[in-house]
Each structure stands twice: as structure tokens, then as C-alpha cells.
Design a protein around this nucleic acid. Sequence first.
DNA 1: ACATTAAGTGATT
DNA 2: AATCACTTAATGT
Length: 209
Amino acid sequence: MEIKDSIKDLFEEELIGEILSVGKLKKVQEGDIVINVGQPIHFMPVVLEGTLKVSMIDDAGKELLMYYLNASEGCAMTFTCCIREHKSEILAVAEEDSELWMIPVEYMDIWMHKYVSWKNFVMKTMQNRFYEMLKALDLVAFNSLDTRLLNYLKEKSKNTGKTVINVSHEQIAIDLASSRVVISRLLKKLENEGRVLLYRNQIKLLKDL
DNA sequence: ACATTAAGTGATT
DNA sequence: AATCACTTAATGT
């Protein structure tokens, strides 16, 4: 029931029937890897509930956070990868306990031609991701690390709707492709400025951030 | 009580 | 802004 509810406004009746019969539910826990780099993709995950964190990995194994995937959004990279049977170039990790609807990739192409609503869905997610990638690129190219850190914190609290963020300095460093020591220093500076409170594995954002 | 992991800090590049 | 080396603090067993 929840499955149908979360996507019923997106697609026409007939397609929903196909989606339900062809896909399957997958529950993941916080920290679970949904898609790993180099892994061939057989399913396209649509987020029903929860959030996925999508990162890019360079040759040296350095991570860089690209964007978050929220409810009723599909993984845009999958569209580009699966058609040519490419391997994944991204890492998707469950940011929180989430529910995904896994659709075998062979239907992507068929539905693309058969259903307008599917095409629109794909186009829309591509458009959204493209926009977020531009933002991410701009942030990396034209802003200093402290700006990026602030952005990271705000984004995270916006996603969870909370002012308390549960994350280690180490993890932030990985997401921003920096190092733990640097993040610790910048956070300490923010704390001294009275903008955050620091705890172990936890950061509290103060109002004026 | 001890080991492990997270965070803080000075010095160096 | 990154890395090294080291300290201190919190947490798990």
C-alpha cells in the first residue's frame, strides 16, 4: 500500500501495474551500500522512503559528495549506466534507514518509449541532478572549504529537519574530499564563533547559521 | 582496566 | 589547506 501511494501520482495506472509486478521492495539500513563503484547495475532504485547519499569516487579512491536522493526520486546515474551495461561510477549509501523499489534495468528503455509519464520522470530526475551537480561544481570550484562546510551542515540539517547532526569529523572530511584535521579546525572555529556546538559524533547547529 | 575510536593542537610544508 | 606527530577525551569490551 505504501509503495503504491508514494508513486501513484507520478505514473499512469498501467505503468504502475508494471512497476509493481516487475520490481521488488528493498529495505536498507543506515550505512548500507546500495550501489558501489565498479559494480554492474541490474536494478534502478527508486527511493520510497528515506535518503540515499550519492558520491563520486576518483581514481585515487577519494570520495566527493554529489547529492542526496530523497523520496520518490530515482538514481539518475543509473539511467546513463544501465543502458550500455556500464559499471557504476558512483557510490550510493543509505543516509538513513530507507525503503527502495528496485526495478530491473531492462525495463528502462522499453518504458521510455511506451509511457510518457516514465519519460517525464526520467527527464525530471536528470534535470534535477544536473542542476545539483552544477551547484556542487560551483561550490567546489569557486568557494573555500569553510563555505563548503557550512553548506554541508545546512544541507544536512535541511534534509533531516533537525539542528542536531550525527556525523563524525572524519565522515565530513570524506564527503568533502578533505582531511579530518582540517575539518576539526574549521568546526572548532565555528564553535568559537558561537555558531555550532561540538560533541562526539554530533554537531548542534545554532540559530544564526 | 584496557583497547579503540573521535577529536584537539602545534609545527611543518 | 594538507600532513605529521602527538595528546586528550569518549566509548566499547
